[in-house]
Design a protein around this nucleic acid. Structure first.
Lengths: 167, 167
DNA sequence: TTATTATAGTTAGCTGGCTAACTATGTCAA
DNA sequence: TTGACATAGTTAGCCAGCTAACTATAATAA
């Protein structure tokens, strides 16, 4: 999702404030920056994964599978844990099946469903990517000391909790 | 883009750390939370705009047009300022054209291009949405005092700047 | 003037979000 | 037991992101 790259400067904000009395410039700037930074962090991750021939959505699915002791779970569990719809998960799974990173197992207990299991190729791909990923995350987050990060996160969470005002 | 909803707990992190020595749990948790919160804030905005019958990408385009003194600009300018490709902007513009929120003006100066202008219907839609949007942003960001927000933003920017480690 | 390089916008194809509708199956209440 | 309701997964259609390739045009160098 597009988040504005060219953020409004003082002139633009003034223009909008003249028409819309509700403008609070600081709030707007802070908000738009947070949105934009979120996009850019995600884009960085995209680009990194692309160097390993992986797409982000599919990679999260591999990770969720690896969490399981038997490397196996159902599409609806994957959808719930990732936070996407079952329809979306259906597509992600199909991509991974095509690439041979997961395999399909027909359900026994519930005939409406099936399971997917991380394959050896899938595990190998994670073994290739995750060390690199973790060391980079560590380095990036190292820009700020842990305690400050805790505080940062708490503040972001406060904002997120307030986001119900958009409901 | 999916950002993980079910974030790893201590057990999961331990499992991954046993296999990948590079894991720094705090960094991972902080990072994943930031990504997730970015997604949720954007989703909130999506839902809000939907109540006004608007899609987020298109709405940003309307805003960019409103910035201009003549409410007019070119597709490539819109693409550059929003941070998306020209191909993507082509689609966004077509949607807005269909809805009559913008109108197309053939280019005079450069025959490779054309301009798009915010229509009265487009301005009316913004006039409907923006007061509501601004007051909600103000309320949401009010969860944290301005000075703390400044600090929060500086820290996020530090992280963003470090995100080149993913390159 | 001509050829090369750059640019504006579009299309095709891939990706991945959504909702609504659907089929198949499971659960629960009467 | 039967009907109503719920659930798992898929499909269609819309949305919006990308790249590569394309056409048309503009700018620049020779």
């Amino acid at each position: 999702m597009l988040q504005l790259k060219d953020l409004p400067d003082a002139k633009v904000l003034r223009k909008f404030a003249e028409r819309y009395a509700e403008v609070d410039s600081d709030s707007v700037i802070h908000y738009l920056n947070i949105l934009r930074i979120g996009t850019e962090l995600s884009d960085s991750l995209d680009r990194f994964l692309a160097t390993h021939g992986l797409l982000q959505g599919r990679w999260w699915v591999l990770i969720l599978l690896m969490r399981e002791d038997d490397l196996t779970t159902t599409p609806s569990e994957l959808a719930d844990k990732s936070g996407v719809s079952r329809a979306t998960m259906s597509g992600l799974i199909n991509g991974l099946l095509r690439d041979g990173l997961i395999a399909r197992q027909e359900g026994d207990v519930d005939r409406r469903s099936y399971s997917v299991k991380l394959t050896e190729a899938g595990q190998a791909k994670l073994d290739e990517v995750m060390p690199d990923y973790y060391s980079r995350v560590k380095k990036m987050m190292g820009a700020i000391p842990v305690q400050q990060r805790d505080n940062l996160l708490m503040q972001l969470m406060l904002i997120k909790e307030q986001s119900h005002v958009f409901d």
